[in-house]
Nucleic acid binder design. Structure first.
Lengths: 333, 333
DNA sequence: CAGTGTTCCGAAAAGGTTTTCAAGAATGTG
DNA sequence: CACATTCTTGAAAACCTTTTCGGAACACTG
């Protein structure tokens, strides 16, 4: 299988390249019969236009770069899928580059992407803290998941405060009153924000955190286990635990199970992230908060398209997360 | 920040575009002093060559497509990283396309990639069973993880039989004699192969499977739990369990823990896949088999490079997996 | 029939780079 | 000094497509 050029198609159809081009691109100034002939010729040669040449002339490569630092692809992949959806895979293809948290590698990738003349860039951070701006680039950039530190950039993030509120709200609606919050590294804004949202919602209800404070620690099952043991010790009457991540929630469930404390009848547990391998397979399956990242990806693509057409935005836009109910939470009684 | 062209550089350096090109590409027929001037001009304008134009003329786009069906990116991401490493990120960028298991979407992506004039294609399956060949394409293709059904294609896969052998071998070296195997869907060649390797190694040792047979089921924690309960019922003297995946292993550990059966002192457990979120955080951390996928990705890139230079291969090549020992296995006593 | 408008097509330029080839400059040789 | 070599350089072609613009053919109108 070799590659036919437009000239081959034109020759076979007995027209000029110009006409062939117009025929295939649906330009009106070509007779229906001629167009038909050209289309047939193109099919016969299984012609597919050289996007490089197209890009050279239209000044649009039809590609975007997705620059990530998220080693596992846990966040980037859903964002990528959403973006692919929004762009339409035949219109735009995406270069996925993983900088692996290394600034030098990021610079490298950036250079490569720019020289590939990508039409735009989506930058996905590994964690939802602000990250350094890429600065002024010849193409539009959208920061997703992790916002840029430059307010002139456009950043799209998920609503961690709202997520915390939603989680606690759900527990309250389940009739829980003694709600504890075990979460990860306090150095992560995600941990702070989720905790803040949780406390806000509790306060509205005139409640306080069971255990008296937020249990900050690490983003690991082990911490979930350890914190839960301490919590049960200090506050055995707890009736709901909001875990700052699904990993932590797994640790929580583990210890509750070990202590023969039934979930959800005695203690309800809610996680965060909707990391399906953890949430779906747990015992019981985990109610959790989903970041709706495909949606974020779609929006990122739309914003990028708009920016390519000159409609540029800036600032941080926050998008709602959503509650996924499974069996680890239920109304009391 | 705008984009300077080679012409701008040439003008600034007071030479022709031809010379500028040669100077920047390290061609020998240009005076050192001239080259110096051109390089400085290029830096001053922060010139970066238009890869589209380069590709148009050199007939090499410097891109490859990674076509996957692996929704979570669990297998594709490491392969992508390996490939990126081997290509060198400044030489070659990769388009990641997820077909989401849909043949039509795959065709779509394929068209798009070909019209982008990718220099080669890496096809990653969602599971290690043979998959339909893409047929004859104008660019070289390497199938990774899931082999093509056409022996004329080149496929690189990981050694599941060897993995099964390695797992059981490790358990035997730990002094275990009553070894059971709980694994996933028997419709997966991965399940069959791993089981075969396990049984082979047992037979060499004159042993038989504890429980009398392979416990096929599903790739889930729930099945791991269920099978373990049945196993303990039927064969309480088991001293090691080889789980066909880390998910299953988590279920196994869960039930053993529940039954107060110590791991590894009474029963050793080994998983498969080295899916780090599951394996590292389990209690105890899980000994498992790693597919070495970055390595597979590197090899895929190398084979692709070779094929682009005309050195094409075919058939199925199998690559060794490796044992990752953590704390869920240990010598008896 | 002259003039006007429409419809359809093709020649050519453009986009940014690499590469070939010829010519000019510098150097060496006899 | 004439000639042959070796160095440097630049003009131009090529890659493949899109788009502009002018021209040809044709149908109407008055």
């Amino acid at each position: 299988m070799s590659r036919a050029t437009l000239r081959d198609v034109a020759k076979l159809a007995g027209v000029s390249v110009a006409t062939a081009s117009k025929a295939l691109n649906g330009q009106p100034q070509v007779r229906a019969e001629t167009r038909e002939r050209v289309v047939r010729a193109a099919e016969q040669l299984s012609f597919s236009p050289n996007t490089l040449a197209q890009g050279l002339i239209t000044q649009r490569s039809g590609t975007v770069g997705l620059l990530t630092s998220d080693l596992e692809g846990r966040f980037s992949i859903p964002i990528l899928m959403g973006a692919e959806d929004a762009f339409g895979s035949d219109q735009t293809s995406v270069f996925l580059c993983d900088a692996r948290g290394d600034a030098i590698r990021e610079k490298h990738h950036l250079r490569a992407l720019l020289s590939r003349r990508v039409d735009g860039l989506i930058v996905v951070g590994a964690r939802p803290d602000t990250r350094p701006s890429l600065g002024d680039l010849p193409v539009p950039v959208v920061y997703a998941y992790a916002p840029s530190d430059d307010p002139a950039d456009l950043s799209l993030i998920t609503d961690n405060v709202g997520g915390g509120r939603t989680a606690v709200d759900h527990l309250i609606r389940c009739g829980r009153r003694r709600i504890a919050h075990i979460t990860g590294d306090p150095g992560y804004s995600a941990a702070q924000d989720r905790a803040r949202g949780a406390v806000e919602r509790l306060t509205e209800e005139g409640l306080e955190l069971a255990g008296g404070e937020v249990w900050f620690g690490m983003w690991s099952e082990a911490w979930g286990r350890g914190a839960t043991r301490m919590l049960l010790d200090r506050c055995p009457e707890v009736d709901a635990i909001f875990a700052g991540s699904d990993e932590i929630a797994r640790g929580v469930l583990d210890v509750l199970h070990e202590e023969r404390i039934d979930v959800p009848s005695r203690v309800a547990v809610i996680g965060f992230d909707n990391w399906s391998v953890l949430a779906v397979n747990s015992r019981p399956p985990l109610t959790t908060i989903d970041h709706n990242l495909e949606h974020l990806g779609r929006i990122a693509a739309q914003r990028l398209s708009a920016a390519m057409d000159g409609v540029t935005g800036s600032g941080v836009e926050t998008f709602p997360v959503r509650l996924i109910t499974r069996e680890s939470t239920a109304p009391l009684r």
